[in-house]
Design a protein around this nucleic acid. Structure first.
Lengths: 143, 143
DNA sequence: TTTATTATTGAGAATTTATATCAATTACAG
DNA sequence: CTGTAATTGATATAAATTCTCAATAATAAA
């Protein structure tokens, strides 16, 4: 199963490197602009392949679609529930390196996702309401 | 919108307390045994309601369906990729209490999910292969 | 540079998980 | 009992992803 260097694969990789924590759909749109008839299945397939070989990172999100990261090394993320954007959570370190045994569990990966309001959205809410109001907007507009 | 004490709600709560980190489908099956014509929508609705009022915990998983926890207090989890079971990750503490500000981010929640092989599955693999072999089985058989 | 091999693709069907709709039902206050 | 509105069941719908498979194309081999 030797890997082949296809245009589609290169375009997907480019998109992940260009966009900020995009999901598959955003990658699809970006790649479609350069190769109009690419299939969604091809985008999904290549995202998985690239993640598998360590070229990109795969971020499992608690809500909505998985996202992809130009940085393959594991790190923690923050998802804003208002604008939907995903940020690197620099304020918290990755728990510990893996693979590694902990209490008999063979830990192969660790996913840490914080959620709440990003600084920009938090500021907006502070102006409008006393407490942190409820707003659930999917990330269709966010980057 | 005062809450009413329905049989369906009680059965859903019972199921979450009886089963170990079940997903909605497992709750549905358990409740169906006692009330055959319950709707899946009712199960989903009540799981959300119960989680919202803090009676149970909701666990966002990186793979597959969300799971529910008789323990409402936030804690970290471990998902075995071989048998699909979900365990409490006692070896790692919940990052920090929330809500709380970190670097300007208003952190409302934190989800930590470890994944790998549970002690039982790890032992199986050690017998069969030198390294930790690849096996991806969905949790249809696991509890 | 042709040919053979097989990884990869595109299109769309299918699956999984979850939510929305809405008339019928039912818990509970009065 | 009766009225009200929370809740339900059935089903449609949605979102995200995977599967299927014949056609295509990247690479090795001749």
């Amino acid at each position: 199963m030797e890997r082949r260097n296809t245009l589609q694969r290169r375009l997907v990789l480019d998109a992940v490197r260009t966009l900020l924590h995009p999901d598959a759909e955003e990658v699809y749109r970006a790649v479609s602009a350069k190769k109009p008839n690419i299939s969604r299945a091809t985008v999904y397939r290549n995202l998985h392949l690239l993640a598998e070989e360590g070229a990109i990172g795969e971020i499992q999100t608690g809500e909505g679609a998985d996202r992809y990261d130009h940085e393959a090394r594991r790190h923690c993320h923050f998802r804003c529930r208002a604008c939907g954007k995903m940020y690197d959570a620099a304020f918290f370190p990755q728990p510990f390196p893996h693979p590694r045994y902990e209490d008999g569990f063979f830990v192969e990966s660790c996913n840490v996702e914080f959620a709440g309001l990003c600084p920009a959205c938090d500021k907006k809410y502070q102006n409008k309401e006393t407490d942190h109001g409820q707003a659930t907007q999917r990330h269709k507009d966010g980057g």
